[in-house]
Design a binder for these strands. Structure first.
Lengths: 156, 156
DNA sequence: TATTGTTATACTCTATAACTATA
DNA sequence: TATAGTTATAGAGTATAACAATA
């Protein structure tokens, strides 16, 4: 949003949210969007997005992973991953090599440069998570995380 | 995703999530995406998206609201709202009229048809929220919601 | 026949900036 | 000068379907 503070609307914005205020779905979306923005801001000097960060982490933790498995792990279609990986490979963060026994699949791994970038992103993420911890509170964090995982696993 | 169940990858997908698994940000995104999909699926016969649903609710609860105030309340730029409202007006769900004292602004309100559609969407939302409640558990719901609101308000 | 990854294509949601008409 | 809303444009991020190479 361009201009959050205005003079004319000062204090007059008594918007009633109605049932929206109580809906998990709506508030989940608002929270997700805020954290996405906040992380993007923290990591923008590195020039990577949350999505690329997730891909780098998964490749780093699972060297040799294929694109199809990676796409399932990150919850999107393999076709959505192609341009992401193309960018990561072009910029020298990810290496792709064919396997011997199945020449259809690629095995993905991080380059030294990829490891370095991932390290820098992890620092951002730690700062970001500290901010979130401060908001959530240490006592409720585990429970909150557990519920998020449960939702992702069981809804739909 | 096109094809979640495959034969070849059966059970072999032991993907390590590493620190990703503990990050609020990542899990928030996964949970949000799942619930978005689930709601879209429930409401797809009505033909409205979560974004349009939010707009209808806010207009219904705040008759006469302006587009700028509505855009701030729903957390997006006014320019993003223009096509949404254009569609709602064209399909006869929302009425737009100029104010007398300030002929720059529109006053938005629901038509009878808009009220009807909103009612149908609310039924979907209730079903959706019941599913979420089942997953979250009655005891933790209030706390979970409170944390979501706190995150949206305080991060960034 | 089935699968991996790519391509072509399109859709949704979002933003910025420049514009118009009003104030 | 400032504000309300529109338009032009662009950029994530996502999906489906058809494809070539390989199994």
């Amino acid at each position: 949003m361009a201009n959050t503070r205005t003079r004319v609307q000062n204090g007059v914005e008594r918007v009633k949210y109605g049932p929206l205020a109580q809906w998990i779905g709506f508030n989940l979306r608002m929270a997700q969007e805020s954290t996405f923005q906040a992380f993007s801001h923290l990591s923008k000097e590195i020039g990577e997005t949350p999505g690329r960060f997730a891909a780098l982490t998964l490749i780093g933790r699972n060297p040799g992973i294929s694109q199809t498995v990676l796409s399932r792990a990150s919850g999107r279609d393999k076709s959505s991953l192609t341009p992401v990986l193309e960018g990561l490979v072009r910029r020298g963060l990810v290496a792709r090599r064919r396997t011997d026994h199945d020449r259809r699949t690629y095995r993905l791994s991080l380059t030294a440069e990829g490891e370095r970038t991932l390290g820098r992103l992890n620092k951002c993420a730690k700062r970001h998570e500290r901010n979130l911890d401060r908001i959530i509170g240490a006592r409720d964090r585990a429970k909150f995380l557990q519920i998020l995982k449960k939702i992702a696993a069981e809804i739909g």
